[in-house]
């Protein structure tokens, strides 16, 4: 009788595997568990058994019932997924016995779903990993900020265009959405004495009209190193090392003078265009170079704002755009793809 019960369970499994609709599943269920079902037929024979057998079969039958119920539920769940996984893959028997039959080894493997990290997260993670090797700690700061942290302390003049309302989102009470992650520099330096070595990834916001190149929310990573005798040379070393690991050793890096209120001397940093091997293409505007980040030596006014002695300490800061790096790396031509979150897009990373 024990064997009958085991058979019954296997048959039920097989029948359920073949069931292709809720109705069919329900039919299978009643044929086993219903009042006139197979299981009840066996149960009816229990009274004629020895007491030991009674207990054993009773227990087995109960267990069987619970398990068939569970199989039924799983079958119902599978119904939803039939479009993804053909039913034929489900009934594979594992008998560990050489049945002499034929197994089609070319059938596709049965895959479990795997969730992907968003490409933005992956880029941030990789950049974190590289800078952690260089001894940089990861810090975070608020996205809603005071003007002081977004502008004043960063030596941005009162009349600077970046403060205007088409470059920064303003909230009530003189608050704003930070337009750059440089705010975290100030917050960290206010809290800690040198030496400081940190990066700060996060969201930033600007009222740009959304198109293939612009989003009103995007991600930046800020970097800062302050100590006695930190020089432009160290800045070049750190960024060149980063580039070698992130972009590869074949990629050249170019530092050219630029202007930011919070650094001096300032630099914009380009890498040689990997799309055209620096020969010139539409991605690099036919210059052979692609701008990847801004950097420079921390302006003495910034040190004054946080109470560091600019005669004693020097440092460098840099900021890079996460979306931009990700787009360059994967050849993505529309920034909006990051925020649409189409599974077909996300699954590629």
């Amino acid at each position: 009788m024990q064997e009958q019960l085991v058979d019954l369970q296997n048959q039920a499994k097989n029948d359920l595997a073949k069931a292709k609709s809720l109705k069919e599943i329900e039919e299978v269920r009643t044929s086993y568990l219903g009042r006139k079902g197979a299981l009840n037929n066996i149960m009816k024979r229990i009274p004629g058994l020895s007491p030991e057998q009674k207990a054993l079969i009773g227990k087995l039958a109960n267990k069987l019932k619970v398990e068939i119920d569970r199989d039924v539920e799983e079958a119902i769940k599978r119904l939803d997924l039939t479009s993804e996984v053909p039913l034929v893959m489900k009934g594979e028997k594992t008998t560990a016995q050489d049945t002499g039959g034929v197994f089609d080894l070319t059938l596709p493997g049965k895959r479990k779903p795997y969730g992907h990290l968003h490409p933005i997260t992956q880029t941030i993670n990789e950049i974190k990993r590289i800078f952690c090797m260089l001894g940089f700690a990861v810090e975070y700061g608020p996205e809603v900020e005071q003007e002081y942290y977004n502008f004043d302390a960063l030596n941005v003049p009162q009349e600077h265009p970046s403060r205007e309302d088409f470059d920064t989102f303003y909230l009530d009470n003189k608050l704003l959405l930070r337009s750059q992650t440089s705010t975290v520099q100030i917050r960290i330096m206010e809290k800690k004495k040198p030496p400081v070595r940190m990066i700060a990834p996060g969201k930033v916001f600007r009222p740009d009209t959304v198109d293939a190149r612009h989003a009103s929310m995007f991600h930046q990573i800020e970097g800062l190193m302050v100590d006695e005798e930190v020089s432009f040379r160290d800045l070049k070393f750190v960024l060149t090392s980063f580039s070698e690991i992130y972009f590869g050793q074949d990629i050249k890096m170019r530092f050219r003078p630029s202007f930011f209120p919070f650094t001096e001397p300032s630099a914009e940093v380009d890498i040689s265009c990997s799309i055209c091997n620096a020969k010139g293409c539409s991605v690099c505007s036919y210059s052979g170079w692609v701008e990847v980040l801004g950097a420079g030596m921390v302006d003495p006014n910034v040190f004054e704002a946080v109470g560091y002695d600019p005669e004693k300490y020097t440092g460098f800061a840099f900021g890079l755009g996460v979306e931009r790096l990700t787009m360059l790396r994967y050849g993505i031509d529309d920034i909006r793809l990051f925020f649409e979150n189409d599974i077909r897009f996300l699954s590629q990373f």
């Binding site: 001894g135 070595r197 040379r233 160290d234 070393f237």
Partner: peptide, 26 residues
Amino acid sequence: IDLVEEVARIHGYKNIPAISNIGVKL
């Protein structure tokens, strides 16, 4: 610092070596 920047620009950023001994920080 503004004069430092002027000299750095004309001397050439590319002539500043990318060498460092920033050492370990835990």
